[in-house]
C-alpha cells in the first residue's frame, strides 16, 4: 500500500447543524491525514464531535465547509451514484451494531453484497467465509436477537468487510460491550488490519481502546483537533490540555491541583527500576503517589505516575532534577485543570 499518499485526507472540514436556536457548530476546521494500513484512533469526550467527524468521512453527513479526499478522490465532487460506490469501499460499524433484526447472521452479511449487485450464491459463499473469519461460522442461521452483544458486533464486522473495503470506520464500536468482549473485538480489528491490510479508523472516548490497538491518534476537543501523532508520543508527552485530561481520571486531578505535583512518564527501560523508592531514600523525604498506571503499548511498557512533592520548594526542585537525570520525562501539573 502506498504510504506516501493518505487514503483519507480531511481538509479544512467544518460542520454545523441548524438547531432550534440557530447554528450549532459540531466541527471546526478539521485537518487530518490517515494513511493506508494505519489504525487511527480519534478520541474525545462525548459531545466533542467525533461521531459527526466519522460520518463526514463517508459523507453520511455532508460537511458545511471543506472536504474529504478518499483515495485521492474529492468526495464533494462525486455524483450520488459515485458516492454510493465509494461508500462500498468504506465499511462501518456502530455502537449499537445496527444489524437487520429480521435477517439471520448470514443474510446480514449478504446484505451489502446484495446492494452492490453480487449474485445470491456467490454472496452466500463470501458471507460464510467472513463469518468464519470473525469466528462465528456456527451462528450463520441465528437471528441478531439470539446473539450476544459481542457476537452481534462480530457479525457487523463481517458485514462491513463483505465488500472488501479499504477502510473500516468504527464508531464507538466497543462502547456497548463489557471489558472482556471489548478485548476480543479489538483483537479482531487488529487482526483484520494486519492480515487484510484494511485501514481502521476508531472513534472512541476510551483511552484503553486507543492504547490497545491504535498506532496513530487524534485528540478531538471542543469540535477541533487538539493534537495528533503517534500513540506513544502523544501518550508520553501530551501537548494539549485536552489530551492530558483524557489520560487522568478527572476527579483525582482536582484534589492535587493546588499542590506542587509532577507527572512522571516511564518508557520501557526504566519502569522496572525503583526510581521513586531510590529518590525517597536519597532525599529522606516522602512523596505522595497520587496516580499511577503502567500499560503495554505496542509491546513496550509505558507507565505514568503523578506524585505530590514535599512542600519544601528547594527539595522539590532537586527531586525534579533527580528524576530528569534518570532519563524520565517529568512535567509539572500545577497548571492542570
Amino acid at each position: 500500500m502506498n504510504r506516501c499518499v493518505p487514503i483519507i485526507r480531511i481538509q479544512n472540514l467544518s460542520k454545523s447543524f441548524k438547531g432550534e436556536n440557530g447554528e450549532v457548530r459540531a466541527l471546526e476546521n478539521i485537518n487530518l491525514e490517515i494513511y493506508g494500513g494505519d489504525i487511527f484512533g480519534i478520541i474525545g469526550v462525548s459531545g466533542a464531535g467525533k461521531s459527526t467527524l466519522v460520518r463526514c468521512i463517508n459523507f453520511l453527513e455532508r460537511p458545511t465547509a471543506g472536504t474529504v479526499f478518499f483515495d485521492g478522490k474529492d468526495m464533494n465532487t462525486l455524483t450520488r451514484k459515485e458516492l454510493y460506490q465509494v461508500r462500498q469501499s468504506m465499511g462501518m460499524i456502530f455502537q449499537q451494531f445496527n444489524l437487520l433484526m429480521q435477517r439471520n447472521a448470514l443474510d446480514n452479511v449478504c446484505f451489502p453484497l446484495e446492494i452492490s449487485g453480487i449474485g445470491k450464491k456467490e454472496g452466500r459463499k463470501k458471507a460464510m467465509e467472513l463469518l468464519e473469519l470473525v469466528g462465528l461460522p456456527d451462528k450463520a442461521n441465528a437471528f441478531p436477537s439470539q446473539l450476544s452483544g459481542g457476537q452481534r458486533q462480530r457479525v457487523a464486522i463481517a458485514r462491513a468487510l463483505a465488500t472488501n473495503p479499504k477502510v473500516l470506520l468504527c464508531d464507538e464500536a466497543t462502547s456497548a460491550l463489557d471489558p472482556n468482549t471489548t478485548r476480543g473485538v479489538l483483537e479482531l480489528l487488529k487482526d483484520i488490519n494486519k492480515n487484510l491490510g484494511v485501514t481502521v479508523v476508531v472513534i472512541t472516548h476510551e483511552m484503553a481502546v486507543v492504547e490497545g490497538i491504535c498506532n496513530k491518534v487524534a485528540v478531538i476537543d471542543e469540535h477541533r483537533i487538539a493534537e495528533t501523532g503517534n500513540v506513544g508520543e502523544v501518550f508520553i508527552s501530551p501537548k494539549s490540555a485536552a489530551a492530558r485530561r483524557l489520560f487522568f481520571p478527572g476527579d483525582t486531578v482536582e484534589r492535587f491541583a493546588e499542590n506542587r505535583c509532577c507527572r512522571i512518564v516511564f518508557d520501557g527501560s526504566s519502569s522496572f527500576e525503583p526510581v521513586i523508592a531510590d529518590m525517597v531514600l536519597k532525599f529522606r523525604r516522602t512523596v505522595n503517589i497520587i496516580f499511577a498506571d503502567t500499560k503495554n503499548i505496542e509491546g513496550q511498557a509505558y507507565g505514568q505516575m503523578v506524585i505530590q512533592l514535599p512542600a519544601d520548594e528547594e527539595v522539590a526542585v532537586r527531586m525534579i532534577e533527580y528524576l530528569k537525570s534518570k532519563g524520565l520525562a517529568v512535567e509539572e501539573v500545577k497548571d492542570f485543570v
Partner: peptide, 27 residues
C-alpha cells in the same frame, strides 16, 4: 424502523429504493 439500521444501510452505499425494499419494508 431503527434509524441506526437505516444509517448502516446508507453507509454501505444503499440507494433510497434499496433502503425501502431491503430495509424499511422487511424490518
Amino acid at each position: 424502523v431503527d434509524k441506526g439500521v437505516i444509517e448502516a444501510a446508507e453507509s454501505m452505499g444503499a440507494s433510497p429504493m434499496q433502503i425501502i425494499f431491503k430495509v424499511l419494508m422487511p424490518e
